[in-house]
Simulated assay, not measured.
Amino acid sequence: MTEDEAIQIAEYVAAACPAQKFGEFTPDVWGEILAPYDADDARRAVIAVAARQPFISPAEIIIEIKARRADRIEAATLVYDGDPGETGLESARSIRALAKAAADGAIPPRPVRAALGRGTTPELPPGRAAAVLGTVGTALPTVRAGVTNPRALPCRICQALPGTSCTTRGRRRQDVHPARLDDAKRAAAGLPPIDPAEEQLEIERRRAASAAALAATEQPAPNYEDIT
């Protein structure tokens, strides 16, 4: 982030939080703190934080930026085949570069099957991981194997986009909504997503069945006047 961009971020915060006070040197200090981060990421972080609280600190902006970058890395489902001729240090550098590219948004969200070279991503070159997969068979991993990536799919509960976390009442969740996890498991198994209308009908059917079962077990209260 440049000095001019840091000034713009400070002005952005001042516009979003009119009650927050800024001094003459506030943009300079913010610029030093936020210098390692991208200005567009910082703007999006300001919007997210301002939506849930009236004041914003640089630390809160950084926390939001890091959370979004972590979401992008997870949604990208990174696979690094490596090079048999490179050293451990070179491999570590390559993996860090790959993770940084995903965090920067250069690698879009993709499902597990695409990351393993079984989708429509011809840019993924064959390598050691592909060779290993070839020795163990060509069947796709099943849901039982736990091959799911919920954040690669949109959430039908909170409308979170692919690559972003679920939210509840405007706050970021540490986990995803159960419905999003179910959709990811069905996608990993090659099944279509659940129809919300059918799901609601099933919920109502179960509620009606539970109410009927409860009513059948209820007994009338005894009338003590009839006891002699």
Rank of each mutant, 00 (worst) to 15 (best):
residue 170 G to P: 12
residue 37 Y to I: 09
residue 182 D to L: 12
residue 80 Y to K: 02
residue 140 L to A: 15
residue 101 A to Q: 14
residue 41 D to H: 05
residue 125 P to W: 09
residue 152 A to G: 07
residue 120 T to I: 05
residue 44 R to S: 03
residue 50 A to L: 13
residue 152 A to D: 03
residue 193 P to R: 03
residue 220 P to Y: 09
residue 130 A to H: 11
residue 9 I to S: 07
residue 5 E to L: 09
residue 80 Y to G: 07
residue 50 A to E: 11
residue 125 P to K: 10
residue 71 D to E: 08
residue 217 T to I: 10
residue 176 V to K: 00
residue 110 R to L: 13
residue 48 A to V: 14
residue 196 P to M: 00
residue 90 E to D: 11
residue 112 V to R: 03
residue 57 S to M: 01
residue 36 P to W: 07
residue 80 Y to R: 10
residue 35 A to Q: 14
residue 94 S to I: 05
residue 66 K to C: 03
residue 97 A to W: 00
residue 127 G to V: 08
residue 109 P to C: 02
residue 23 G to V: 05
residue 154 P to W: 02
residue 194 I to Q: 09
residue 48 A to G: 03
residue 222 P to L: 15
residue 173 R to K: 11
residue 28 D to W: 08
residue 224 Y to W: 14
residue 161 L to N: 12
residue 228 T to R: 09
residue 23 G to L: 01
residue 222 P to V: 14
residue 213 A to F: 13
residue 139 A to R: 02
residue 95 I to N: 00
residue 228 T to D: 15
residue 145 A to D: 15
residue 26 T to N: 03
residue 100 K to S: 06
residue 4 D to T: 12
residue 44 R to H: 09
residue 154 P to V: 08
residue 156 R to I: 10
residue 182 D to A: 14
residue 83 D to G: 02
residue 195 D to T: 04
residue 177 H to E: 05
residue 58 P to H: 02
residue 208 A to E: 13
residue 18 P to H: 05
residue 45 A to H: 13
residue 161 L to C: 01
residue 92 A to K: 05
residue 177 H to W: 12
residue 54 P to I: 12
residue 155 C to R: 06
residue 66 K to E: 15
residue 198 E to P: 08
residue 25 F to S: 11
residue 195 D to H: 01
residue 195 D to E: 03
residue 103 A to G: 14
residue 228 T to N: 07
residue 80 Y to P: 05
residue 132 V to P: 00
residue 55 F to M: 10
residue 228 T to Y: 09
residue 171 R to C: 04
residue 86 E to T: 12
residue 91 S to Q: 10
residue 149 N to C: 10
residue 189 A to T: 02
residue 201 L to Q: 14
residue 126 P to D: 12
residue 134 G to W: 09
residue 104 D to I: 04
residue 110 R to V: 12
residue 129 A to S: 08
residue 117 G to C: 01
residue 138 T to N: 06
residue 15 A to N: 10
residue 85 G to M: 01
residue 219 Q to V: 15
